[in-house]
Write a protein that binds this DNA or RNA. Structure first.
Length: 589
RNA sequence: GCGCCCGUAGCUCAGCCGGAUAGAGCACGAGCCUUCUAAGCUUGGGGUCGCAGGUUCGAGUCCUGCCGGGCGCGCCA
């Protein structure tokens, strides 16, 4: 239940009734306004700009229109006060009991609190990770993987039906390089001296077991043969092995995909030719010569005729090649085929999560989707900026050339999957992110993972203490279970800090919806941090004023009400952490 | 040269399809431990939201132009 969208609907209904009664000028629209929490809490619980937005079309002054709405709003059962403020805001304050009652909603729903139906079961395809199958995953891939996975979970919570997809770039020159590199290791496994790995091949020793496996399966059947004889088989063998490696890495982070799509498979099934035919039938393909890029001319530039896609007709800067000058397909052509495949599987909402270095590619892909779907499908592309790996503020050296890059496995084994996932979501996707080993190992407020986890663990701890304090009291112990807490007297929670906490808890459904609609899972992390801070603050109030402690042995009703409140906090934290893919901690060690 | 992203407190960053007096953490100053875990809390100072225009009842948010930083720029994926 998103309180704000419910009140938006309510205000709309009221405006409609007023219009029908002639209390508003005919033609006044009854939509287009918002109901939001005011930035300054002293203004109330909800604020609407309806009077200001509708004043002009109604031909009225904003404050006059507001004054007409006020009595209607005052009539609503949960509304305590209504005020017109500033240029024409209408500020509502709800009964205290309304907020207290929301805590019961949380206990009833459990971690399903915040589940929304705004997605209305619409199918969304989220493509993420898509690391090239040429080696194990390194930290650079990690951010997109976590981002995509959390976004998918967020969309599911908001009521979308999500397909999590991985695109395997298992075609093209890099895969040949992989196959040759693995073949070299194969010869090594058969006892040959291979010496230094030649320039242009992958040097990483993760290929040794692949070579050994090749030797085991194929014996010396590939020895003394020409490359043409073994290359295709070696490609399959090596990419399969790399994908197995990548799946293991993803499993370390708790990431899974529903569908793995293969670029090679698109070629083999004729899907690329099919995509070309679709574009051709729309008259969007032609043979032409591209202008050289302005400013920086490549050394070996020569004008050559190529098969081009008319991307400029859909907002791109230049038309884009579908075939290289030697007649083979470009990567873009396969990617068009891939997105057409998604469209033909019925997806009209797609999200691609890419690295920031692919930024130059966004327009052409969106142009292609527009062209293929005649503008009926939406493709959102989320670019993830780089992760700066630091240790105590000092950059961690990585040299991919020397094969000494920091792998995802290294990082997960060092700090744990939950920490990695949380930290990766503490920035907007389009802002660079620092990942400091020293900081994430630290157990302090400086470390947001710890801070949020500590709030959850603290609730668990208080509940444990309560069970101990009332150990001899069977009725009380039963009342401490979630089912028992449902029937507590929530009206006893009348301290301003308690109401404030209840408000924050009750805003979780709205947070879910707005984060999902914006495709911004990082908002979950920031909300959880706020919620944790609010809880820690209340916990500390109990230090100065013993009467505010959660457990009051001499007042069982109050104790139960407060435990219900903090249990609700823990459930919402758990709900948010689940979206982020982080296991909530029962206690801190 | 062109395109995309970014520019908010000394530092790192939030700011929810424009909304009221711009927020948090760190750092700095002052306080709180016979405690439901001080692994925490309270409190003070600190801002021309890069610059200049524009749009309107209202701009950190939208538009234009500059300045500064990052990424990318046929036949790499």
């Amino acid at each position: 239940m998103n309180i704000f969208s419910e009140y938006q609907a309510l205000v709309g209904r009221i405006l409609g009734e007023m219009l029908a009664r002639g209390d508003l000028p005919a033609g006044t629209p009854v939509s287009g306004f918002s109901v939001e929490p005011p930035r300054d809490p002293s203004h109330g619980d909800l604020a609407t700009n309806a009077a200001m937005v509708l004043a002009r079309p109604a031909g009225m002054k904003p404050r006059d229109l507001a004054e007409r709405l006020v009595p209607e709003l005052r009539r609503q059962p949960d509304v305590a006060t209504v005020e017109v403020a500033g240029p024409g805001f209408i500020n509502l304050r709800l009964r205290q009991g309304f907020w207290q009652e929301r805590l019961r909603d949380v206990l009833r729903a459990g971690t399903a609190y915040g589940d929304s139906r705004v997605g209305a079961g619409r199918r969304v395809n989220v493509e993420y990770v898509s690391a090239n199958p040429t080696g194990p995953m390194h930290v650079g891939h990690c951010r997109g993987a976590v981002f995509g996975d959390a976004l998918a979970a967020l969309l599911e919570k908001a009521g979308f039906e999500v397909c999590r997809e991985y695109y395997i770039n298992d075609a093209g020159a890099q895969v040949d390089v992989l196959a040759r590199s693995a073949h070299l290791r194969y010869r090594e496994a058969l006892g040959e001296q291979i010496g230094a790995i030649p320039e242009g091949l992958y040097p990483g020793d993760y290929l040794q077991p692949v070579g050994a496996a090749m030797a085991k399966v194929h014996g010396d059947a590939w020895r003394g043969r020409t490359e043409a004889e073994w290359l295709a088989d070696a490609r399959h063998f090596a990419t399969d092995a790399m994908m197995a490696l990548i799946r293991e890495d993803l499993a370390l982070l708790g990431i899974r995909h529903d569908v793995f799509s293969s670029e090679r498979d698109l070629h083999e099934r004729g899907r690329v030719d099919h995509a070309l035919e679709v574009l051709r039938s729309k008259g969007l393909v032609y043979e032409g010569v591209l202008e050289p890029p302005k400013g920086k001319l490549p050394d070996d530039w020569e004008p050559r005729p190529q098969l081009l896609f008319r991307a400029t007709a859909f907002g791109d800067d230049v038309d884009r090649p579908l075939k290289k000058s030697d007649g083979s397909w470009t990567y873009f052509a396969a990617d068009i085929a891939y997105h057409l495949d998604k469209l033909e599987r019925g997806f009209t909402e797609m999200i691609d999560v890419w690295g920031a270095d692919h930024g130059g590619y966004v327009k052409r892909m969106q142009a292609a989707v527009k062209a293929l779907s005649d503008g009926r499908a939406a493709l959102d592309i989320k670019l993830c900026q780089l992760v700066n790996l630091l240790d105590n503020g000092q950059p961690v050296r990585m040299s991919k050339r020397a094969g000494s890059f920091v792998t995802l496995r290294d990082v997960v084994e060092e700090v744990g999957a939950g920490v990695v996932r949380f930290i990766m979501l503490t920035r907007k996707n389009d802002a660079p992110l620092d990942f400091d080993f020293a900081k994430v190992r630290e157990q302090s407020k400086d470390n947001p993972v710890f801070y949020v986890q500590y709030a959850h663990a603290r609730v668990c701890s208080v509940l444990r203490n309560a069970r101990e304090a009332f150990a001899g009291d069977a009725g009380m112990l039963a009342a401490l279970e979630d089912g028992g807490l449902l029937s507590v007297e929530v009206s006893l929670l009348d301290h301003p800090a308690e109401i404030e906490l209840a408000r924050l808890v009750a805003s979780w459904p709205r947070q879910v919806e707005s984060a999902a609609e914006a495709h911004e899972p990082h908002r979950v992390a920031f909300y959880l941090y706020d919620l944790a801070a609010s809880f820690h603050s209340l916990w500390n109030l109990g230090k100065d004023q013993a009467g505010l402690r959660f457990i009051n042995p001499e007042n069982r009703g109050l104790t139960l009400a407060r435990l219900a409140m903090i249990r609700a906090v823990a459930l919402v934290i758990a709900s948010g952490l689940t979206i982020m893919g982080v296991e909530p901690a029962e206690e801190m060690r």
